[in-house]
Design a protein around this nucleic acid. Structure first.
Lengths: 342, 342
DNA sequence: CTGAAAGCGCTTACAG
DNA sequence: CTGAAAGCGCTTACAG
């Protein structure tokens, strides 16, 4: 019971060093011996002991860098909280985690953070990567070089990467559709406001929203779909124009972070509290809106869990050489209403 | 950087053994020496290395017993899934986790499981304790003897225990009220069906539900509140009688696991699909009901998370001697609708 | 009351 | 290509 390297070494009639070489692919071992060791390990169902492993390799510090694409906000505060929670549990494994904030979705700056982290010898990276060709190129390159990289919270289709940990955008979209159906008893004129589709996830979300309506909820009708930048002034203008152009709109699916501008437009038009509004995430104005019943519900994506999982996936890979089962670790979206945040 | 026992020993001019004695309260040490060591440890902000700690004490196996009060069902399957997930992450710490199923809420049987686990030398216990004086007494006794016990998923007011990990019943109640308010646009005649209040949590949930309505949602009216046992035949009869007696009821808060009986009553009366039904948890008939839109929503309590946290709390205590920050680790209730389970 | 030594299961130079 | 030894940070008998 409980197989160790020593036991395998004894059975194979070699030293632990040799077993180590075979099982961890360090240096050359005579083929015949290697084969024998592998057989024994397999027969005995050997699994290396993570705890011993990390204790023994404590000298060569292992460092994980978490790179975000903007300054802190409520969402990233939660992501960071999850990251730090995970960091605490793996601290004693000699793994250090460092968070570096980006600046205003600036690709150049993020690029410099990325290169900087690699130059400083970080052993793994979690990044909310900006959808920019140079960044994608850069991530591909480092991944190709064997650096474990996790895309955190922002979906990009990069195969080479270790994993994507973040929102299940399609599910977030269909969940929103189902919820709006319930909240409006199956009949609604909907205006959609989305962040730019250049962030791929957002398109996936809206597509799923529409697909869900088309297949299940015929009483829901989408009158307008707007992409707006992360800019509250723009949000105000565009949202206002949409509501003026479509006075029949009684429901807003407001799937963007630039919330206060849009909310102001709703208020200025005297529609606050009259519209059914479903939002995403939990920014400050959303919290406020739920509180005073102007916002009906919001679809969250468990940012704490995202941060936590990103670190776990990297930890498992660094310590165990483990690949995640699926390249996408999708975090379950959840419905929050007023009482959820009380 | 990075304080170890050896460093402290050197600074104090003693051996590591002595430092160990002081910091872990094993055996006597001259008061003056002990004091010096404590000072140094505090100054240097020493925190013991969990990894080394557990590796070194690997010989004396540590075992956690998880005792449930009934056979498996979807809820406990998820709890067990969480338990096993946590068990995997701590396996290499030499901690074994074993799950033992109760039988039909039978206190005698649970008592025998509890005594059995202690007799077999388990080092910690997580238990979905039945609200029975003998069991409470027994838990108190073992807790008093220093055995770390976590109450899992079933709330009891036992101070001596290490922690309660489970549903936030009051929040579950207010969340249900808020949700029903949204689903019915603020106007509903409600029938409540609850499991017996002898399980304390259920009373807390219904109380919070009513309190929330009283303070915020005056358009909601509770016409009947029924406690029913976990028995589908009874559930059928009682639910049917309630609906016949109060034909104005348009909304059901069906906060019990005995679901299929009640659902059959609704169907037999031709009300399926017409009532707004909010349920709790995700038993098979609930899943089915959400699927075909007969059930509007259900309030879940993250059973996977409960199982996971229970083990984590015990692990932290066993390995680190850490007490949980609060004695109650409350799991956030969540709203699930049709699309949540698709 | 205190220290020296061995050990937990692995990795890492260092020899050969 | 392979082995013996030291070490990661702690605990645990065993002496004294």
């Amino acid at each position: 019971m409980h197989v160790t390297m020593k036991k395998i070494a004894d059975l194979a009639g070699v030293s632990r060093g040799t077993v180590d070489r075979v099982l961890n692919g360090r240096g050359k071992v005579k083929a015949e011996v290697a084969h024998r060791i592998k057989e024994i390990a397999k027969t005995l169902d050997y699994t290396p002991n993570t705890v011993a492993k990390s204790l023994s390799s404590r000298k060569k510090k292992t460092k994980i860098c978490v790179i975000l694409h903007a300054q802190r906000n409520l969402f990233f505060d939660d992501v960071i909280k999850g990251v730090e929670e995970a960091a605490t549990t793996i601290k004693d494994f000699g793994i250090q985690v460092e968070v570096r904030l980006g600046y205003n979705f600036d690709p150049d700056y993020q690029l410099s953070l990325l290169d900087g982290a690699v130059a400083e010898g970080f052993n793994a990276i979690a990044i909310t990567a900006i959808n920019d060709p140079r960044i994608i190129e850069c991530i591909k390159k480092y991944s190709g070089d064997g650096l474990p990289i996790v895309l955190l919270s922002s979906w990009l289709d990069i195969e080479d990467v270790l994993a994507y940990v973040g929102c299940d955008y399609p599910k977030s979209g269909s969940l929103s559709a189902g919820l709006i159906n319930l909240l409006t008893k199956g009949s609604a004129k909907i205006g959609i406001v989305s962040p730019p589709f250049s962030m791929l996830g957002h398109r996936l979300r809206i597509d799923a929203f529409n697909a869900s309506i088309a297949s299940e909820y015929r009483g829901l009708e989408v009158l307008a779909t707007l992409e707006i930048p992360f800019d509250d002034e723009q949000a105000y203008i565009i949202t206002r124009r949409m509501l003026e152009k479509h006075p029949e709109i009684d429901t807003l699916f407001y799937a963007t972070g630039a919330f206060s501008g849009g909310l102001r437009a709703v208020k200025d038009l005297g529609l606050y509290g009259k519209l059914t509004i479903v939002s995403v995430d939990l920014a400050v104005p959303v919290m406020q809106g739920l509180q005073d019943k102007g916002i009906t519900a919001t679809i969250c994506q468990n940012p704490v869990g995202q941060g936590f999982m990103a670190i776990r996936v990297l930890f498992d890979n660094l310590i165990m050489g483990k690949l995640p089962e699926k390249r996408e670790t999708l975090i379950e979206p959840t419905i929050k209403i007023r009482e959820s945040i009380l």
